[in-house]
């Protein structure tokens, strides 16, 4: 059987909220190392990779690997029933048809029990090459969300270009064009707002803003986001889960998006 308790149900709620509009059904693979989900959107343009290590759980028991086929919008509906400071316990039998979800308030005076029906999902998985990226930009997740939102006003494709000086987001559409440049900041009052760029050579790629917009739904998870790019490969937009700022969290939520290319 599988049984795991997270002290903060809100963390799981934010994770599922962040992916449920991009991916409807997904298999959560549970093993002794933790919980993992890899799923693509219906057009196979983007991919979500969620890793929750056992470290982030208060209690984690997994006797045998289990695949939990989950309808994510329905899971999100149940997670919305948790209180702000509730813990959450997930339980499943080896060949069970349901996932039990139990919320407990801090003082344990309120206990809510739910069951979510599991599904058989025929999910296609892809092997993501373990590669070093040419460019890694770390910035405020709220700032990234704002830029993506602002770019969407003007068009549907955003160019992201990075040099040592800064990272430039550009868009053009029927009503005109725009761009926003963030300079690398050495000293800022608020550490969370710093822009740091590690790069080998300048890179510029084009991406569909619709998908970048989906990814920024993960902003409540972490004040920082890491954007990784290399020429002619999918971009990675990654958030730590259950960690602080730039430090390695006990988990991660990464989004991959295939670039747009000139025809």
């Amino acid at each position: 059987m599988f049984e795991a308790t997270l002290q903060k149900a809100s963390t799981l709620k934010k994770v599922i909220e962040a992916i449920k509009d991009l991916v409807t059904d997904g298999n959560i693979e549970v093993s002794e190392t933790g919980m993992n989900l890899q799923a693509m959107d219906s057009s196979h343009v983007s991919l979500v990779s969620l890793v929750l290590h056992t470290d982030m759980f208060e209690h984690f028991r997994c006797d045998r690997n289990v695949t939990l086929g989950i309808n994510l919008p329905n899971f999100a509906k149940i997670l919305k029933c948790s209180g702000n400071d509730d813990s959450v316990t997930l339980k499943a039998q080896d060949d069970g048809e349901n996932l039990a979800i139990v919320f407990e308030s801090e003082g344990q005076e309120r206990v809510s029990e739910f069951e979510l029906k599991l599904m058989d999902i025929d999910a296609e998985s892809l092997g993501i090459p373990d590669q070093d990226y040419n460019t890694n930009v770390k910035m405020s997740s709220a700032e990234f969300q704002r830029i993506v939102r602002d770019m969407t006003v003007l068009g549907d494709t955003c160019s992201i270009g990075c040099t040592k000086e800064g990272v430039k987001f550009s868009v053009s559409g029927d009503l005109g064009q725009g761009n926003i440049t963030l300079r690398q900041t050495n000293s800022v009052d608020k550490e969370e707002e710093a822009v740091t760029i590690e790069m080998d050579e300048p890179v510029e790629l084009n991406f569909a803003l619709r998908y970048l917009g989906f990814f920024t739904k993960a902003s409540p998870l972490c004040p920082r986001v890491t954007i990784s790019m290399s020429p002619d490969v999918p971009i990675v937009v990654a958030y730590n889960v259950g960690g602080e700022k730039d430090t390695e969290g006990a988990g991660s939520l990464s989004f991959y998006l295939a670039p747009k290319i000139d025809e």
């Binding site: 693509m40 057009s43 196979h44 343009v45 983007s46 991919l47 296609e124 998985s125 892809l126 092997g127 993501i128 090459p129 494709t157 084009n206 569909a208 490969v233 999918p234 991959y256 295939a258 670039p259 747009k260 290319i261 000139d262 025809e263």
Partner: peptide
């Protein structure tokens, strides 16, 4: 115009 690529062109099926 720009063409959207898919992930299958970059990531392999295991």
């Amino acid at each position: 115009s720009m063409k959207q690529t898919t992930l299958a062109s970059f990531f392999k099926k295991p």
